[in-house]
Every structure is written in C-alpha cells, then in structure tokens.
Amino acid sequence: MRGRVDPAAGPIFEQIADQVEAALARGELRPGEKLPSARALAEALRVNPNTVIRAFELLEQRGISETRRGLGTFVREDVDIEALRRRRLRAAARRYLKAVRELGLGPEAAEEALKEVKDVT
C-alpha cells in the first residue's frame, strides 16, 4: 500500500479503505492475504489506531475483508477484483471527462485524445 493520507481530502478512514481497494485493483494485494495490523498501519501513517480500525470495519461491510479472531484482518477469498478494477476505471474515466469538459470539449474530443496518446506511447 502506498502509505499516505491527506487530512484535507475527507475522512481518513475512508482514504485508508480506498487505498486497500486500490492495492487490490493493482494486484499489489491478493485475495486471502493478511492486511497489516491496525497498529502497524497507524504507525506508518501517523494516525490514530481507531481510524484504521474504522477503515477495516468499512472494508468488512463492503465484503472486501474479514477479521479472523486472534489472527488479524484478511482479504476475503471471494472478493471480486474485476468489479473493483472496473469501478476504479470508471472513476478515472469520469475524472478525465470532467477535465475534458472544463476545456469546453466533448466526449468525441476525449476519445480522440485517448487514441492520439495511445499511438504516441
């Protein structure tokens, strides 16, 4: 996980949960793997351990992780990585489209620019 939170960018526990999802979507974290302990993660991020515990609770509600008593928090084996990846891709696409609209351009220009960039790199 890329350990960084921004206190000006909304609740920190949501940011931590989002970073766990991002790590899963990128393949840096896999189903069945153990997450760092709340305290270790809290220390690395310099945040209150309660905040990390709240993040783990949110991930559990979303069906992404599960807590095994005495063992720690694990990524669920049945987590739908593809769905996570698509959701994040759509979010990235929305951000891109927003930037395009701010330039006064439409979806056609967005698609064209994507093709151009793809051809170059």
Binding site: R39, A42, E43, R46, V47, N48, P49
Partner: peptide
C-alpha cells in the same frame, strides 16, 4: 508522533 501511536 510515531511514539504516540506506538504507545496508544
């Protein structure tokens, strides 16, 4: 800060 988290 790290110590305060560690000792929490």
């Amino acid at each position: 800060l790290k110590a305060l988290v560690h000792e929490w």
